[in-house]
Design a protein around this nucleic acid. Structure first.
Length: 297
DNA sequence: GTCCAGGTCATCG
DNA sequence: CGATGACATGGA
């Protein structure tokens, strides 16, 4: 196989290994593969899967793709990597905020250069938020793998099989009885179908959502889907649109980390959580991401 | 055995 | 309205 390498300079305050640590958390992830410092993944472009790999060397990302891919597809891969690792963001204001917030200073020192690793596909983010509701992450990844391997397409690249998240079409037609045998609850199956139908029948798309100007209306567009509550809506807005003010209220990991850092004394004290985020205006989503990161030590 | 996980909805009072 | 139970399973 003949490949071509594209280099992408990394910005200040970017640390590939911090990002790798997040990607490699020991969970049974099925939407990308890791091999040493190489990240492998496939995106879909005009109906075909485009596989690529990413590594870093001397302050540059090296992105490898098959040399036969079109210029347009190559652009899509670059755009995807850019979004996935939130490369274009200037983190310096966030780090200034962290440095003046005493309780958060350790986060800055420990995770410097960590980017908000996103989920560029809105459909994938919403389905993942449904899958992850109320169950531990080990189990959630297991459920996701079953869904992806059953309904998603895959392609081989550099000795790895790379799966792509299923389309709304394929999940709107999912086999409920089969997923029941795969330990999906009735609720999750219905909610995933609802999300798929919102895309197919109600005009939901990442583009349409991004065109809604204000945060509350975006959130309402998502919570209108049965199965998407405030947590899921904000999770998706944070991971897909990098919406700064999206805070997944009710998240157990979030409250746990705030408790660990002694920012709140009582895990049920929501006003204290709201007050804390008042201090982080514009960087709430990043703060949440760093707080989650802090749970892994 | 118990309790809680990267929640949400339906169904009460 | 706010409170409560069901959902499915695994790990501590």
């Amino acid at each position: 196989m003949v490949t071509r390498t594209i280099t992408l300079p990394t910005p200040d305050l970017f640390d590939f290994d911090q990002c790798l640590f997040f990607l490699d958390r020991g969970y049974d992830e099925c939407l990308y593969q890791l091999s040493d410092r190489l990240v492998l993944r496939a995106i879909e472009f005009e109906g075909t899967l485009i596989p690529f790999s990413i590594t870093e060397k001397e302050g540059k990302l090296l992105i490898e793709i098959e040399s036969s891919v079109t210029v347009e597809a190559q652009k899509q891969v670059l755009a995807y990597v850019n979004e996935w690792f939130d490369i274009d963001r200037d983190l310096s204001p966030f780090y200034e905020l962290l440095s003046v917030t005493k309780s958060l200073k350790p986060l800055l020192e420990k995770y410097k250069g960590l980017r908000l690793i996103g989920i560029p596909s809105l459909f994938e983010a919403l389905c993942w938020s449904v899958i992850g509701q109320q169950i531990n992450l080990t189990f959630a990844f297991k459920l996701k793998r079953r869904l992806v391997e059953t309904y998603g397409k895959s392609i081989k690249f550099k000795g790895h099989t790379l799966y792509h998240f299923p389309s709304p079409e394929s999940l709107a037609a999912l086999d409920e009885d089969y997923l029941r045998t795969q330990q999906y609850s009735r609720g999750k199956i219905k909610y995933i179908k609802n999300v798929a139908e919102a895309f197919l029948n109600h005009g939901l798309s990442k583009k349409a959502l991004a065109q809604i100007p204000d945060f509350e209306s975006r959130q309402q567009t998502l919570t209108a889907i049965k199965g998407i509550g405030v947590w899921s809506a904000n999770y998706a807005l944070m991971k897909t649109l990098h919406q700064p003010e999206a805070i997944p209220f009710g998240d157990t990991g979030l409250t746990q980390s705030l408790y660990n850092l002694k920012i709140i004394a009582d895990r049920k004290d929501e006003p204290a959580i709201v007050a804390f985020f008042e201090e982080m205006k514009g960087w709430e989503a990043y703060t949440v991401f760093y707080l989650w990161r802090s749970l892994a030590g």
